[in-house]
């Protein structure tokens, strides 16, 4: 079963085609570009490119898998709306996966941290690929405390590198961003079971910045 994978929850924008069989997930083609400001321009051509490289047409897709974040809002929405619109057009199911989970598929206790801007990180802790904490957004110093409590030995993700000193956990070099193969693997059971598609709801974790209007200011002195 040919599956389109997209993720735009980090500065990397990822598109890939994965073949999901009964016992394996094989990535057939993928494109990744790292440019936090150009997700909207980069993703659709990347989807076209992975289809062309695999010699496939859109109608050959049987499902779409998308990283739900958490991630910076504007870029994150590009991946989700792209996945949703392609899924709607082709009438194939869309499945969401937590983008942090794709980084946490490792042995042992791992802290996954991505860059949330505003000097914060999106993070969660995993043990042998199982998530121990809910995805959250916090200051690195706060995360350092939780990671120590949980006995985390290694950290992964772009945020883990950027704030390695504060976090106090050794950061692994790779991967920096959610790998396409891991995103596909996380949804593979649903793809195989032909599970009903899900609405792709982003993990924003932050409320919009907006202030309710105050009493009006007088113009007369």
């Amino acid at each position: 079963m040919l599956v389109l994978v997209v993720d735009s929850a980090t500065p990397a924008v990822t598109a890939a085609l994965a073949e999901v069989s009964d016992d394996a997930v094989v990535v057939r083609s993928q494109r990744r570009a790292v440019d936090a400001r150009a997700h909207g321009e980069l993703l659709a051509p990347a989807v076209e490119a992975v289809l062309a490289e695999a010699g496939a047409r859109p109608r050959d897709l049987t499902a779409i898998v998308a990283g739900l974040g958490p991630g910076p809002f504007t870029g994150l929405r590009v991946g989700l709306v792209t996945a949703a619109s392609i899924g709607q057009t082709l009438d194939v199911p869309t499945y969401g996966v937590c983008s942090l989970d794709a980084l946490g598929l490792l042995d042992g206790k791992v802290l996954v941290a991505t860059d949330a801007r505003r000097r914060e990180v999106y993070w969660a802790v995993y043990e042998d690929g199982t998530r121990l904490t809910e995805p959250a957004v916090d200051l690195p110093a706060t995360v350092a405390g939780r990671a120590a409590e949980l006995g985390v030995a290694v950290a992964i993700g772009e945020g883990a590198h950027k704030y390695a000193e504060v976090l106090g956990v050794a950061a692994r070099d790779e991967p920096l961003y959610p790998p396409a193969a891991a995103l596909a693997a996380l949804a593979a059971d649903r793809v195989r079971a032909k599970a009903p598609g899900e609405r792709l709801t982003p993990l924003y974790l932050r409320r919009p910045d907006a202030v309710a209007q105050s009493v009006r200011k007088p113009v007369l002195p």
Binding site: A44, R77, V81, A84, S85, Q88, T89
Partner: peptide, 8 residues
């Protein structure tokens, strides 16, 4: 982004 998804 939606229009691109529909178009492609």
């Amino acid at each position: 982004a939606a229009a691109k998804g529909y178009a492609l």
